[in-house]
């Protein structure tokens, strides 16, 4: 895995480099291409409910997916959802397989060096979970020598643990939220850091698991696109502002994020 981690950035930069050189040859506005072909290619990740997942009927849905569906409908375009692993998302958009990424990607400063981000769509709260018998009350209790904290590999929570809980030991897990929750339940780590959506899921299904007090931080979530696509950025921002003002986003958030109303329809 170490070898791969060393090679992946290299491959990503080769992709980026080739992507840029080819652009200079055929600079074409992607929004123009979209309106010509009538298709919107969007890279998504199946990171889990309520953001993006496959429901009991085999339909791809979730908050991010429903926002994109609304965008396609409002623009009169056909939606082509491309499902990638987390590691495939950024290469997919840089190599032009997809027009933009609709995942729960935090617009960190490091990512913004390589990508363009839309205005934040909504803010997710980052929390910590642990088992009851560990005796933690708040995430502040985790910042101690000998406490291990699990997070999803290469997620923005890695830096968060390093910054906010420097004394604890960080453990990264591939395979998304479910493997991190499993690690907490089986005692492989003392606690985990994740967003509220995931945490609410896991405390429900694992007896004895709890959400610790206090929000660690609020994180903006935005869609990501290639750095040079200014028209696309305006096009996406325009839609986000639109649904923020006409109440559509509030309706979606109420259904997917601030309640578990979606569960009976999709779980």
């Amino acid at each position: 895995m170490n070898k791969m981690q060393r090679i992946l950035p290299l491959v990503t930069s080769v992709v980026a480099l080739l992507g840029m050189t080819s652009l200079s040859v055929s600079a074409q506005d992607v929004v123009e291409t979209m309106s010509k072909t009538g298709v919107l290619h969007v890279a998504v990740q199946t990171q889990g409910p309520p953001i993006s997942f496959v429901d009991k009927n085999g339909q791809r849905t979730g908050l991010a997916v429903e926002i994109v569906k609304g965008l396609a409908e409002a623009s009169g375009l056909t939606l082509d959802l491309l499902d990638y692993d987390w590691k495939g998302l950024i290469p997919a958009v840089l190599s032009k397989k997809a027009d933009f990424i609709a995942a729960d990607m935090t617009p960190t400063q490091k990512r913004a060096l390589k990508l363009n981000f839309t205005i934040p769509i909504f803010y997710s709260e980052v929390l910590s979970i642990s088992m009851n018998n560990k005796g933690f009350k708040s995430w502040r209790d985790l910042n101690k020598q000998g406490v291990s904290i699990g997070v999803v590999q290469a997620s923005s929570y890695v830096d968060m643990v390093k910054n906010f809980m420097p004394n604890a030991t960080l453990k990264e897990f591939a395979g998304g939220g479910p493997s991190v929750a499993q690690a907490v339940a089986s005692g492989r780590v003392d606690a985990a850091v994740m967003d509220r959506g995931g945490a609410m899921q896991y405390v429900k299904v694992y007896p004895g698991m709890q959400i610790l007090d206090d929000v660690i931080r609020k994180e903006p979530l935005a869609f990501a696109l290639r750095p040079d696509e200014t028209h696309l950025l305006q096009y996406l921002n325009n839609y986000i502002r639109f649904i923020q003002t006409d109440g559509e986003l509030d309706r979606l958030l109420a259904y997917w994020w601030n309640s578990t109303a979606w569960e009976k329809d999709h779980k």
Binding site: Q47, G48, P49, F53, V54, K56, G176, P178, Q182
Partner: peptide, 16 residues
């Protein structure tokens, strides 16, 4: 494996 990971999202406690 991908299908398994996707299904687990709906049943996180049944990962094993």
């Amino acid at each position: 494996v991908r299908e398994a990971n996707v299904s687990i999202q709906r049943f996180p406690s049944f990962i094993l």
